[in-house]
Each structure stands twice: as structure tokens, then as C-alpha cells.
Write a protein that binds this DNA or RNA. Sequence first.
DNA 1: GCCCGAATTTCCGTTAAAAGGAAATTTCTT
DNA 2: AAGAAATTTCCTTTTAACGGAAATTCGGGC
Lengths: 276, 276
Amino acid sequence: MSAGRAAERRGFTPGERGLEQSFGRATVILNALAASGEAGMRFVDIVRATGLSQTTVHRLVAALAEHGFIEQAATDSRYFLGMQLAGWAFAATNRFGVAEVAHPIMHHLSEVTGDTTYLSLRSGDTAMCVARVEGSYPIHVRIVTPGDRHVLGLGAGSLALLAFIRDEAEIERLLNLPEQRAGRARAGVDEALIRQWLVASRRDGYSIVQDLVPGTSAIGLPIHGPTGDPVAALGLAAISTRLQAPRLDEVLTEMRAAAAQIEARLRPMPKAHLVR
Amino acid sequence: MSAGRAAERRGFTPGERGLEQSFGRATVILNALAASGEAGMRFVDIVRATGLSQTTVHRLVAALAEHGFIEQAATDSRYFLGMQLAGWAFAATNRFGVAEVAHPIMHHLSEVTGDTTYLSLRSGDTAMCVARVEGSYPIHVRIVTPGDRHVLGLGAGSLALLAFIRDEAEIERLLNLPEQRAGRARAGVDEALIRQWLVASRRDGYSIVQDLVPGTSAIGLPIHGPTGDPVAALGLAAISTRLQAPRLDEVLTEMRAAAAQIEARLRPMPKAHLVR
DNA sequence: GCCCGAATTTCCGTTAAAAGGAAATTTCTT
DNA sequence: AAGAAATTTCCTTTTAACGGAAATTCGGGC
């Protein structure tokens, strides 16, 4: 989330420079294109959205397109994010092999419970949702969408990622980040409540967040990586009435089994070095 | 196009320079990291794999990490692809809204047929597999994996993307690309055979490739975008014995329904412009 | 705990190219 | 076809990318 910092000033570039700046600007453009979604953006749209000069955008866009970061529609001249990004992303979300292992297991979990399951990966100080599998129960709870990134601690999966970090100091650091405070404020959750959730999560071995989005609840279980710290979280969301005793326990049993399966297949730490 | 052409006077680096070069090098590094998969790469690994100078890699890696293109593991100092890429990728694969619409439909298709279904998007002169849903039949046919990119025309989905392009000249152009020839050579398919497939695809309204990977067959159906040209392809793969009459017809019926559903939900062309 | 080789980071002068303003050209709209 | 909007090119100054090599830090045997 450090992207948009220096994006708007013209004339003199105050912040970072050089490659730093180029990649920063590229990030701004890519984010703009991502936000534009299915519509894509024309050259001017990019210029306006980023506040960069025409020349700069022109140069950047040419370079980005040349290397497949972005693509131009065949028919009109609108720009879109390039498929190349997708290729990298599949590799990125498969860190520790999680995605590949988790997918079929999540399917099974969604099938037996009927609810929507999620997979989130920790990425620095945030959690990113990398997969969502819908269940058959007619009321779908879609609190997050693949690609969404949010502060650690808000949302069940995200909470599980935070709660089971073993280094207390790291947890404190994360709780005191400005983004954290901002995120909490937005969600209407105060620090005391988060801390309460953390304690409960560690006591119970899972996280549960009830009615943060009114009427819905979600459960999160940590998936521990080779080092012992959580690298991912398995989430399950449903309307609150479906996540109360006695059903809650049945769901938990299934989820624990699923998380354990995923972890078990993760273990072989890839210590291999490479290119010699 | 033709952005960095004026700049190849002597000096030392013969190819492209500047931003062009920076993004090119970034691409090389990202590809290397993608290839390294779960193992990640240390600084030296990147230096060796790319052949770039230490200084250059150092500068690039710092800039890439600063902006979330890559991340460094907390424990040791290995580099991985950044989750930021995943965020962009979900947006990229959802061009025309295909991914979002297609996912549940593919699930249903895999469920009723028991076979593995694929979704490929056209990206310039190539097709990229962006989704795979496994069926329940015990023999899984995994000819491609999400993130795989290949030449148009090889593989059922890819063939469907090629065959239903309406501009004949464009098809000719694609068939004559060097990558095409190379890809055909690798797969042991000659031009006559491809042309034969194209004719058959257009006659039948679907593509079928039998035993290109021995023992397996695959079907591809085009998904037409708002302009009428195919933007995506729905694929289904199974062992060859499962894709013969009379089952073939049943599968085709299901697939046609699925493809039609996807297309129907795509139609509203996003002509909206944006930022004003 | 100390050492040695490997890995990573910093320094440096040279030189290409990134910067943005503005103008020229092309494309779309009316 | 005229006019407006969008896109590309031109131009000069300023800046940081470049890679060789040195300095520092890291890691893992003994």
C-alpha cells in the first residue's frame, strides 16, 4: 500500500527518483488499470487518473506494453492489464505450494459444508485473498474477493494469520501500524476488541468473527509454514445462523481436517538453492 | 511501438535501453522468480540466472521490492514474487468479466461431466490458461496449468481461439509466426494438420484434439466477445475413451450450454469511458 | 568462537536517457 | 468537412543508470 505517495505533483519530482520512481509510476498505472476493470483505459484516461505528464505516460505505457505488463485492445486503443501478470500471479500465489495443494481441499470443504471458503496469504503487513470457492448453500457470503488485500486482523482469515504469529513483538508492531488503526477505524473495531479476538483465537485454535458484516460470520484457521509461523489462512464464511452450535462444531471439524491436510502437504521445506 | 529505436548508438549495451531496458530486465527477473517456484531465489541466484551485473540486479531488486513486485522472505533473505502481482492478475484475467462469470459455470460443468475444464484467454498472439477446475473422475488430465501460455492453435482451447477469428488474414498471420512454427515443430504437428483442424472446427462449431498427448483428448469451444471475435475458450480434457460417441455428444451439449451461458453474461459491452 | 570463502552492499566517474513543455499529427465527433 | 480531442514527436536540460571494483557483512565449518 505504499504506492500512490508521490503520484500527484508535477514540475518537480520530490520523492523517489530513477528506477524507484519508474516502478512507482508503473505501479500507479497498473493500479489504475486494475481499478478500471473490464472497461480498460485510453491514453488520456491514464494521464488524468495518474496526474503524470503526457510524455511520461507515453514513455511508460510504451515500455510496459512492450514487455506485456499491459496490453492494448485490438479494436479500439484502450489499454488493459497484460496476461503476463496472470502468469506471474499463479506462481506468486503458489508460494510454499499452498495454492495448488489447497484448491482441491477447499473444494471438498465447500462441498461438504455448503459454505464459501477462502484462502488468504500473508504478504508483508497485509493479507491477500487468493482463492474463493463457493458452496452450494443458496445464500453466498462474499465478504472478500480474490485479489483483495487487507490489514492483518480484520476478517477471520486475516485474524488467524495475525493471532498465531509467535513473535509477540511482531504482533505489537502490526497492531500499531497506521494502516491497522485506519483499517480498524473504518471497520468500527477498537483495539481492545481485536486483542480480545486474538486471545480467544489462541485459546480456541481458530478465529471467529461474528456479525462484523451484519448477519454473516466467518471462521479462520491458520496454516503454518515450515518455520512454524502462519503463512496462510483457511477461511469459511456463512450467514451467522449457520455458524452456531451445534453446526459450528461440525464445520470446525471439517475445517481442522482440511487445514491439517494442507499443512501436511506443505511440510517439505524447499531448501534447495538453485542455479549453481 | 517503436519507442526505443533511436537509441542504439554505441556505448556498450547493444539492445534496448532506458525504461524499455529496465522493464525488460524486470521481466527477466520476475520470470526467473516465477520459474524458481516455491524455492525462491537469493540475490546471487538472480544474478546468475539473469546474467546481469550485481550492481544492476541490486538496483532493480531494490526498486522491485520497494513497490511490491517482489518480496523478501522474513526468515532468510530469499526473494519471491510479490502478492501485488496477484491483485493485478485477478483484474487481468477478468477482462470482459470472463473469469468471474466463468468460474461457477466451469464448476458445474466439471461436476456434471466429471472431467477437467479449462478457461483460456487470448492475449495477443498467444493463449493463456487462466483457470482449471478438476472433475471427479479419478483420472485427471492436466495438460496445462493456470499461468501457462502457449501458441494459438495447439491444444483444443487454443485452437478454438484461433479457428473462430473472423479475419482470415489475421489467421494467416498467426499461422506464419515464427513462434507458431516452432510450437508446431515441438508438438510434432505440421501446418496441413492445423489447417485441417481449423476447417473441422469451423464446420462443427467446436475444436477437438485427439491424442496429441497420447491417451488424452480435449474439446474447445470459443467464447465470443462483444465484437464477435473469440476472447476466450472453454476447454475440457479427459482420457480419449471418455470423449467418444455417444458420450462425446452429451459432453458437447453440456459444454455448449456452458459456453452460451458465459457469453450471455458477457454481452453488455463496457463502453464507459471514465475519469473525466 | 574464530576464520575463510561466499554473498551482499557501497562507491565512483562516465554517459545515456528520463524528464516535461510544447508543438505537430492523427483520430474521433458533430 | 470542420473542429475538438487524443496521441505522438521534438527538443534541451538534468539526472541517475551503468558496471567495475572495493568494502562490508554473512554463513558455516573446524
